[in-house]
C-alpha cells in the first residue's frame, strides 16, 4: 500500500507538471484528490489495516495529499501568472500614438484681455458697468463736455442713427449713465464694450472695436491716485518691471488729461521696432474728470473729484501678443483664435 501511495504521488506530480492550463490542472486535482480519486479510495481501505499500521498509513496518506496539493497550488499560481503575462503582452499598445482629441474651445483674445483687466479691478473693489451700443448724443457727447459744434467732436467721427442717436464712439456714456444712477454716491467702475467710429477698416483701423474704461468718483480723488492705478495696469498687463510715464494730453471730458506710455516690454527701453526706437509705448489716455462732467452727472465738483481712463483692447492685445493687423480680431479665423488657448507665465 505504501508502494501504491508512492506510485500515485509520483504519477500525480508528473501530471501536474505536465498540465499546461488551469482546466487540465483541475482535472488532475479531481482525479487524484477528488472524492472518487485513488487517494480517497486508499483512505477508505484503511479499515482493513491493523490498528498499529493505521496511524502510520494515515500520516503517509496525508503527506502525499499535502505534497500533491502544494504542487497543485504552486502550479496554479504559475499558470495564473503565465496567463496574466500573456494577456499583458496581447494588450500592449504603441503609447506614442496620439490620444483621442478632446475639443477645448477658448475665449476670443479681446475677451481675454478685457477679462484680465476686469479681474484686476474687481479685486480692487470695482464694479463692471455696461450700457447700450446705440446711444443718445447727449450721453455720448454732451454729458461729457462735448456740446454740439465742439471742435473735438472731429476726433471721433461718428455713425449717426438720427440727429440725436448714434453708435457710441467710446464707452464713456456708460460713465455718464452710471453717475446719474449712483445719485451722488462715490463709486468705482470698469466699463468694457464695443464702440464704433466712422473709419475704413485697414491694418490699424476698425470701424468697430473694444474699449475698457475706468471711472472712480469720490471725495479727494487725486491725480496721484490715477497714476498709481495706471501703474498697476501697466505692471499687470505687461510685466512687473514695466515703468510708466505720463504725458499731458487733451480730452474734453478730463482736465488735466494725460496719455500713458510704458517702458518698452520688448527692449526694456533701449529702443527697438516695437517702441519705434523711443523706449516707450503709448498705451492709454486718462485724466481727472472734468468738473462739467461731474456736475452734469449730479456730483458737486467742489466736493467730489474723480479720475477716468480708457484702454483700447485691440491695442493691448496687438502689443501684448504681437498681432500686426487689427482685422485679425474680426475675421474669426480659427487658426488665429485658437492660439489664445493656453495660459501664460
Amino acid at each position: 500500500m505504501e508502494q501504491q501511495l508512492k506510485q500515485l504521488e509520483l504519477e500525480a506530480l508528473a501530471k501536474i507538471e505536465a498540465a499546461s492550463n488551469l482546466k487540465e490542472l483541475n482535472e488532475v486535482r479531481v482525479a487524484y484528490l477528488g472524492k472518487k480519486g485513488p487517494i480517497t479510495d486508499l483512505l477508505k481501505g484503511m479499515g482493513k489495516l491493523s490498528p498499529e499500521e493505521r496511524p502510520k498509513m494515515g500520516a503517509l496518506v496525508n503527506t502525499v495529499r499535502e505534497h500533491v496539493t502544494e504542487k497543485l497550488e504552486t502550479k496554479v499560481a504559475h499558470l495564473e501568472e503565465q496567463a496574466v503575462l500573456e494577456q499583458l503582452e496581447k494588450e500592449a499598445i504603441d503609447v506614442t500614438l496620439p490620444g483621442r482629441p478632446v475639443r477645448v474651445g477658448n475665449r476670443h483674445p479681446l475677451t481675454r484681455v478685457v477679462e484680465e483687466i476686469e479681474d484686476l479691478f474687481l479685486s480692487m473693489g470695482y464694479e463692471i458697468a455696461e450700457g447700450p451700443e446705440v446711444e443718445k448724443d447727449y450721453y455720448n457727447f454732451e454729458a461729457l463736455n462735448l456740446p454740439k459744434g465742439h471742435p473735438a467732436r472731429d476726433m471721433q467721427d461718428t455713425f449717426y442713427i438720427t440727429e440725436e442717436t448714434l453708435l457710441r464712439t467710446h464707452t464713456s456714456p456708460v460713465q455718464a449713465r452710471t453717475m446719474i444712477e449712483k445719485k451722488g454716491e462715490p463709486f468705482r467702475i470698469i466699463c468694457p464694450g464695443k464702440v464704433f467710429r466712422r473709419d475704413n477698416d485697414d491694418a490699424t483701423h476698425s470701424h468697430q472695436f473694444m474699449q475698457v474704461e475706468g471711472l472712480v468718483v469720490g471725495e479727494n480723488i487725486r491725480m496721484s491716485d490715477l497714476k498709481g492705478t495706471l501703474d498697476i495696469i501697466a505692471k499687470k498687463m505687461f510685466g512687473a518691471d514695466r515703468e510708466i510715464r505720463l504725458r499731458p494730453s487733451f480730452f474734453p471730458f478730463t482736465e488735466p488729461s494725460v496719455e500713458m506710455d510704458i517702458s518698452c516690454f520688448k527692449c526694456g527701453g533701449s529702443g527697438c521696432n516695437v517702441c519705434k526706437h523711443t523706449g516707450w509705448i503709448e498705451i492709454l489716455g486718462a485724466g481727472m474728470v472734468h468738473p462739467n462732467v461731474l456736475e452734469m452727472g449730479g456730483y458737486d465738483p467742489k466736493k467730489y473729484s474723480g479720475f477716468a481712463f480708457g484702454i483700447g483692447a485691440e491695442r493691448i492685445a496687438m502689443l501684448k501678443y504681437g498681432v500686426e493687423d487689427i482685422r485679425h480680431f474680426y475675421t474669426n479665423d480659427t487658426r488665429f483664435i485658437s492660439q489664445f488657448q493656453r495660459t501664460e507665465g
Binding site: G125, Y126, E127, G218, D231, E255, P256
Partner: peptide, 29 residues
C-alpha cells in the same frame, strides 16, 4: 483745473507720486 494742469505739466508729471484712492472701500464684483 486748467491751472492745475498748467502747473503739473511744467512741474513735471514724473514728479507726481503714485497712490491709490483712499476713503470708504467700495464693494465691487
Amino acid at each position: 483745473e486748467d491751472i492745475v494742469e498748467e502747473i503739473a505739466r511744467l512741474y513735471g508729471y514724473d514728479e507726481i507720486p503714485m497712490t491709490l484712492p483712499e476713503g470708504a472701500v467700495t464693494i465691487g464684483g
